[in-house]
Nucleic acid binder design. Structure first.
Lengths: 339, 339
DNA sequence: TTGTAAGCGTTATCAG
DNA sequence: CTGATAACGCTTACAA
């Protein structure tokens, strides 16, 4: 391994000077020696050791992507398709800014604190079901933190998410506008997650405002994103159709597509016998017949915003918190019939 | 920040002793002092600094998941659904063994070498389009390396992948057994990737052996996993149907499901007018009508094997290379009609 | 513009 | 069993 000292002695200068060159402190070293040192670095193949660097400077150049899973929850959340896109986006951007991405699941506050001290991460993206205790620990760290899809909107932390409540509202409104009044809602409950419940809340409250309160019996719940659990919703939904339900809001496109396909398998004609609207605007939504109407938000923008927010905080360019709520819109693709 | 020295002085011992306690070297320290030190550690909330640790010991406790993208390729590969599951699996297992997972995209060999030296990673999982040059650099490092879905089977490296060639063979055989002789194959070409071409190769060679060589005009190619690119396959496939093609092998379930849905949208009745068989056995395959027949391999096992292989090498328990090729099987779900 | 020296937090060596 | 002491590779006052 080539160290900075090796370079220094090979170039006939001190380690300090080499260090200064590496960090581009042009004012502290003559162009002449700088060029020479650069040449030696290239020739010897010197590559700095990040451990040594982060030990002495207070910056580790590590950005962590923390996924909080409350104790016994399965790795469910991490299987969200958005998550992978976010990781890709974050890794790319952070890498281009000279950072390294660490992925870490933390079950407890203690895990988090330990991890933070272990590596002295420069910044944190945090996803998952963050509770009070956890967010408190985050706020307590002096590092930039960006919450992604956080269930709680902590005033001391930056966050990025879509307007789930409004999405629920728009979904309800869309169905109402098409003449539906016998409505239901299908929702996946993921422990500690607030995203889906918010969508339901928007849906429910908008219906109440419109004078068509949601019948609690027509809220169809499954307890995980697994196929088996999702499939268990189909029977109750079918029963509700028989009893007059004409339209269904669904908390995610994934679930909507699943219900749709199962109903069609059972011989239902859609949207004639049931109108549906999803949430998230997955690409698969245009593959079905009918195509899936849904609530759209810019998934790419979400990752971009998170990254740009982090970058600004890291560079010190921005100190105030960024609390970004992405707008949602209805995409009408034909899975909602006009009554 | 509480350091090991702080603990030492608080406990009235030397830093060395504290270190010994932390590492569980029971033989080198009396139970009495050990207990006392443990108590102090707990009380003061001491948490070791990994940078310092990896600087002095030769182990960083960092495991890197390297994704190699050849220069201009888009982040396509990382969007493979398997990738996320692999990450989740790897992060969990490695964490339980006391390691930290870093995610890193490397475009060039140089990127890789730099990264390796930067962090002195203890082990490497590598995905993506690895060429000779890249794999040589990997073999040159003294750290355990596990290639996942590597296009080349480097004799000096461990790898895990499914039997893509045999999958192609089985797909061809399945179609032949159902009486089809007018066959085609749809394949996504991802730069530097060998997985899909291998599937095609197996398909093609099996057909040749059976005396029904694949008409090169019936190989339908698209150049990325993007929706737009995939959709461009549908027209040619439709044309081929008109000209007598009765069955289609497809390199992935994703693509198969897309083609299936588009043909159905255009009024084709499946599998009556076209039989199809995919590859990968995605959960979505059971949502369609007909359900998608496919080539199955155990995606979970793939990640598990990769992890277990890495663990063994890290613990020194195993020094020989593990070169694992997962078996594939046909899953008959009804998207292949009997002629 | 350059160099010296101290020290970041930890582990390893070796002597007591 | 325990403890000095010297590294590990690098940055950063401060001195020249």
């Amino acid at each position: 391994m080539v160290t900075i000292k090796d370079v220094a002695s090979a170039a006939g200068v001190s380690a300090t000077t080499v260090s200064n060159v590496i960090h581009g402190y042009h004012s502290r070293v003559s162009k002449e020696t700088a060029d020479k040192i650069l040449a030696v670095i290239e020739e010897m193949g010197y590559i700095p050791n990040m451990s040594a660097r982060s030990l002495v400077s207070r910056s580790s150049h590590v950005i962590a992507m923390i996924n909080h899973l409350p104790s016994d929850a399965s790795g469910d959340l991490i299987l969200d398709p958005f998550y992978l896109r976010a990781i890709a986006q974050i890794e790319t951007s952070m890498r281009e800014s000279g950072y390294y991405l660490m992925l870490r699941t933390c079950n407890t506050r203690r895990d988090l604190v330990t991890f933070l001290q272990n590596w002295n991460a420069d910044g944190l993206f945090v996803t998952g079901a963050i509770g009070e205790e956890f967010s408190e620990a985050l706020a307590g760290s002096d590092r930039p933190v960006v919450l992604i899809d956080s269930p709680l909107r902590n005033e001391n932390l930056s966050y990025v998410l879509q307007d789930d409540y409004q999405g629920g509202v728009l979904a309800a409104r869309h169905l109402l506008e098409h003449g539906h009044t016998q409505l239901g809602y299908a929702v996946t409950t993921v422990q500690g997650q607030n995203m889906f419940p918010e969508r339901l809340r928007g849906f429910r409250e908008e219906l109440a405002r419109a004078g068509h309160p949601l019948d609690e019996k027509r809220i169809f719940t499954c307890c995980s994103r697994s196929l088996a659990s999702s499939l268990s919703l189909v029977d109750p939904v079918e029963a509700a159709i028989t009893e007059g339900m004409t339209a269904l809001g669904v908390c995610s496109d994934q679930l909507a597509l699943l219900i749709m396909s199962q109903l069609q398998k059972r011989g239902y004609s859609l949207p004639a016998q049931l109108s549906m609207i999803g949430f998230g605007d997955l690409p698969q939504g245009i593959l079905t017949t009918p195509e899936l109407s849904t609530i759209h938000y810019d998934i790419e923008a979400k990752a971009v915003q998170a990254v740009s927010c982090m970058s600004k905080m890291l560079s010190g360019e921005q100190t105030e918190l960024a609390q970004i709520i992405l707008p949602v819109t209805v995409v009408d693709r034909g899975s909602v019939a006009r009554l």
